[in-house]
Structures are given as C-alpha cells and as structure tokens.
Write a protein that binds this DNA or RNA. Structure first.
Length: 549
RNA sequence: GGCUCUAUCGUCUAAUGGUUAGGACACGGCCCUCUCAAGGCCGGAAUAGGGGUUCGAAUCCCCUUAGAGUCACCA
C-alpha cells in the first residue's frame, strides 16, 4: 500500500512534518545534570493532595538540579472538564509555593518557548506526528464501531484471551486503500490506531527512578492514538509533548506504570529517545481496616483547599509531604532546625514504592512544630491572613489591636522550648477565646477541690494586691503570700508532704485566678495572660467571677 | 482472570547476608512544674505464613496469602 497516499487521504489538513516542529522547538541547552520535569494535570476539578505531592516531587527534582519545571494542561477529554479547572489547579500550586518556570500560568496565559502548553491547542502538532506514523505504515484508520469493539472484547473474555484490539482481532489493520478511501468518502468516523510491532513473547524493560528495573511483555495492542475527533489520547499526547518540550524526566502517578510499554513503543516507532520515568505511589487513606487511594469524591481532605480552609500552615503541609516522600527529611529537619524545606535535597531513590496512608495526626504534629518555630509576629501575620479569608469576626478582633494580638501569640513562645498547642489557624479562635470578650464563653470551669467560699476570698484578696506592673517573680510571690495568709501551703511540695496541715497550696491560688480571668482551668503562662489582658479586663472579670459564686 | 508492583511496631519507615531489628508520630508511666502545652527519662509495640540456599536470612530463591495498579475513542 502507498502509505504516503494514505496519510494524505486521512490527514489532508496536516502540512507540517516532525522536522518542522523540531526546528521550531530546538533542543534545550541544559547544564550538566539539569533535569526538566513537568506536572500535567487534567482540569477536572480541584487540585488533589496527590497532585500536589506529585507536583512537589517534580518541582523539587527540576529545581534542585538547576533545571526547569513545566506546567502542562492535559485537556483532551472535554467531557470531564470542569469550569475554572485550570484556575483551581493554578491557585492550589501557587498557594503551596510550587513555582512554575514554563507553561500555563493563568487561565489564558502561558510562558516559555515550547508552547502551547495546553493540549487542546496543539492539534496540528499531534497531527504531524500521527501523519508521520501513517507514512511509515505504523498507524492506520479504524472504522470499527463501539459495538464491534465490545463484541470483540466479549469474545476474548469468553476465550480468556488478552482483551484489546490486536493481531487477528484488529480487523481494520488489513483494510485496502480502496476500502479506506470508500469509507472516508462516505464520511465514516474513524480513529487512528498504532500498528503495534510488538511481540508478546518479548519483554521490554526500563529503569524506573523509584522502583528500579521493571520488566514487562511488549505491547501488542493497536492502541488508539487519535480519537475520531482527531484529538490525541493520553498516550500519544504524552509522547509528542514530552519529546517536543524536552522533558527529561517524567514523574507521574504509578497508575501509568503498566502503560510504559505502550509509551516506549510509541517513542520507538517515531524514532525518538524516550525520557526517564519515575512512578510515584499514591497517597492512601484508611478505610474500614483496609486502605484505598484517597478519593476526590469521598474524602474532603483529598482537596488541597481543605488544608487552606482548615488553616494548616503551608510549610507544614509541604514538610509533611516531603516527610512522606523521603524518610530522611526528619533527620534533615533535626539537623537544620530553621532550614526551609526547599533546602532539603530530595532523592528519588529514597521514595517509597508502596503507597502510604495519609496521617492526619502526623500532619498535626509537623504543623505544631512549624507554628512553634515562628516568631509571634509571624504567627500574627499568618493567623490574620487566614482569618481574613475564613473567619471574619476573628479577623476583626485580631486586627483591632495588633500589639495586643501579637503579645497574645507570644505566650510561652521562648526559643528553646516553644509552646506547641495549635496546629492550624482555625484553632486560634478556640485556643485564645479568653483573650476576647466577644468570643469568651460564658461561665466558669470551677476547680473541684476548692471551696466556693475560699475561691471568693482568694479572688477578693487578690484584687487588693493585684498590680499590673509586677514582674513575674513578685507577681507569683504575691500568690504565695496570699496562700499562707488563708491557710494554704506556700509551696506545692510542702503541701504534698503534709496535706493535712493545709487547705490547699499556691497552685490552687493560681487556679482560682486563672478560672476567674480566663474561665478555664488551663491556660498558657498566667502572668503573661494577665499582663496582656490589662488591668481593666482583669478586674472586671474577677468581679464577675466573685458575683458568680 | 492476564500482566505489573508491594508486604518490618497501630501509622510512616531505617537496617542493601552478621544490629539486643533503629527512629518518628501515636499510646502509657515517671520527672520537671502555678494549670495546660513544651521539655527530659523510661516503657509496651513489628520482619504476613510456609519451604529452601547459607556457618548465618527482615534481607537471596520458590510457593501460599493479602493488598495496590492496569487491561477505554479517561487521564
């Protein structure tokens, strides 16, 4: 058959060749060891935590090598597309500090010399590569209907054969030029299939960056490369795009691992050199004893917006992801307390090759540490940023008196042993509610071991000796003096040694004042709380407390 | 079902033929302490099962079991 003629028959509108495009997109000049990676999501909804993970791995791999990180949009399936899909992805990446060197940077904006980076705008390019395949006799039009394909499949299943369009089942493989021409002239829809040169007896092997050597049977299926609307399938688009864009390292989810033989074959048929591959395990979720891939539909925590809404610090989420990626990230953090996560050298070989469970508890811990290591000014800034978006009332309260709020975030924030209580900004409201009359809950959590009469005495007497200017030592000495005055032990130890001699101890004095002022039994450093609250609030609250008794 | 991958404390994992199988999170106890948090110390907790190979196996091989992925004109 005259394949040149066939190519012109089925792809008449294509007038450029692979060489033409190679001239438009020349080979990149990269320094030794520099890697080009890409993140290539479909705009089918919000950015998934697994997507962020994969983007992070790709971005790190590129940037720590001095290479480039590309964002490509794979919008070849219009049915699944979602409104603002691109924007949502961009927003998510930006939020978490993933920097894009090339590709789509806004709904209708791209940067870089290897574009367009949106697959729906690359039709002619795929056409050229497909036409080349037809000319080589390595691709052919297939006119089979959905029903026919289903029939073939059923037949194969009943015979327990490999399902798919291949070998003797590939009817359209052997169509003559005349038959094809007739079908085309009749306007019959067709797809373009690869005429697979594979042999199931032979193996292909490749070295995966994470899993090492993987060996699989060659692909023998005549996969579709161009759908009936001339839009490429993922397989074909991947090969064409990553070749032309100069991707040197394809990092993607491990659901692609079993299609590698197809991709390798496509590169081979086109006479192109394939990139390196690394397939990362998905993030899993515990589900009734078993585990399953974290799911967009069922799990709210699958969306990255969940983390921003909850107010997990961005760096905490990234550190958690890095921790999931490389076990030695923890060691790195221990050795470099104040280092930013971008200073960590991610190693592909240290990636786990089975999917780990997403551990919200661990995320919490990491986020607590991240917040604990911030200055009070930073905490203020971040908390305000979050509140502005998600808690208007809190935003108003925090910004009403910046100095006050900043002091509040400074409670127990000493550099050696920083207080670790909040993991996310949404906890600020509850944790610091007592600092604001507007959100302070009513009522008091009375200590159980102290008589109400004693509480009253303590509160009244404390009012008399309270001086908002006391430093911490003299402030606490007043508690001790007061304790002794009313038959409580000056030191907790004295009380423990002879409990029968005392009604209580100095700790009980502070408990009463703590409850009077904050309403609760637990609080950070009481001296700091009183000082920040200020004389007016303190006295008013003590009065309210006395009245409540 | 075919193909591929995986299997170490509850969880994430370290130990690439020789370790009392290590760490982190979580959990429990003690200490410190005006409460809480933090911190310090201590503790319980694992090589899926069965066969080999070897002086020696978590590690290599085989089988079993379990889980994951994939087998579209979806990505």
């Amino acid at each position: 058959m005259d394949y040149e003629k066939l190519a012109d028959l089925i792809l008449p509108e294509i007038d450029k060749t692979i060489e033409d495009y190679e001239a438009i997109y020349p080979k990149r000049e990269l320094k030794e060891g520099a890697v080009v990676t890409r993140f290539a999501p479909s705009p089918t909804g919000f950015l998934h935590i697994g997507g962020l993970f994969s983007a992070l791995i790709s971005e790190r791999t590129a940037h720590q090598s001095g290479g480039k990180f590309i964002l490509r949009i794979e919008d070849t399936d219009k049915k699944r597309e979602v409104e603002n899909g691109i924007e949502k992805i961009l927003e998510g990446l930006c939020e978490f500090g993933i920097k894009i060197d090339e590709g789509v940077v806004a709904e209708d904006e791209e940067i870089g010399n290897y574009g367009p980076y949106t697959q729906s705008k690359r039709g002619a390019i795929y056409g050229a590569f497909a036409k080349e395949l037809v000319k080589k006799g390595l691709a052919y039009p297939c006119f089979c209907t959905e029903e026919e394909i289903a029939g073939i499949r059923q037949n194969q299943e009943s015979q327990k054969l490999l399902p798919g369009y291949y070998g003797e089942f590939a009817k359209c493989r052997n169509l003559s030029y005349e038959q094809i021409e007739e079908n085309v002239k009749k306007g019959m829809p067709f797809v373009l299939r690869l005429k697979s040169p594979g042999n199931a007896e032979r193996k292909v092997s490749f070295k995966d960056g994470i899993r090492g050597k993987i060996e699989m049977p060659e692909n023998i299926v005549d996969v579709v490369i161009l759908k009936s609307d001339k839009i490429p399938t993922y397989h074909f688009a991947h090969v064409v795009d990553d070749y032309l864009m100069g991707t040197t390292y394809v990092i993607r989810g491990d659901e692609w691992i079993s299609s590698v033989p197809i991709h390798l074959q496509l590169f081979y048929c086109l006479g192109l050199k394939p990139p390196k591959y690394a397939h990362i395990a998905p993030i899993m979720k515990e589900d009734g004893g078993g585990k399953r891939k974290i799911s967009k539909r069922k799990d709210p925590e699958a969306a990255v917006s969940f983390y921003t809404e909850e107010g997990f610090p961005v760096d905490g989420v990234m550190e958690y992801l890095l921790n999931l990626a490389n076990y030695n990230f923890e060691d790195f953090k221990r050795a470099n307390k104040n280092a930013h996560w971008t200073e960590f050298k991610l190693e592909m070989s240290k990636m786990s090759n089975s999917g780990g469970l997403f551990d919200m508890v661990k995320l919490n811990d990491i986020c607590k540490n991240v917040i604990a290591s911030m200055t009070k000014e930073k905490v203020y800034e971040k908390a305000v940023e979050w509140a502005k978006m998600f808690d208007e009332e809190l935003y108003g309260l925090l910004t009403r008196d910046k100095a006050y709020s900043t002091e509040m975030f400074g409670f127990d924030r000493n550099p050696e042993k920083p207080r670790k209580d909040i993991a996310k900004w949404s906890q600020v409201r509850e944790s610091f509610s007592y600092m604001f009359d507007e959100i302070k809950q009513n009522g008091f959590e009375y200590p159980e071991n102290i008589d109400k009469a004693d509480m009253k005495v303590i509160a009244q007497k404390y009012k008399e000796i309270y001086d908002e200017n006391d430093d911490k030592d003299s402030w606490f000495n007043k508690f001790k003096d007061l304790a002794v005055q009313i038959g409580f032990a000056r030191e907790v130890k004295e009380y423990k040694a002879n409990p029968e001699n005392y009604k209580g101890h100095v700790g009980d004095i502070s408990s009463v004042i703590r409850v009077a002022v904050t309403g609760r039994m637990k609080s950070p450093d009481l001296h700091g709380v009183l000082k920040t609250l200020g004389k007016e609030k303190v006295l008013k609250r003590i009065d309210e407390f006395i009245e409540s008794l």
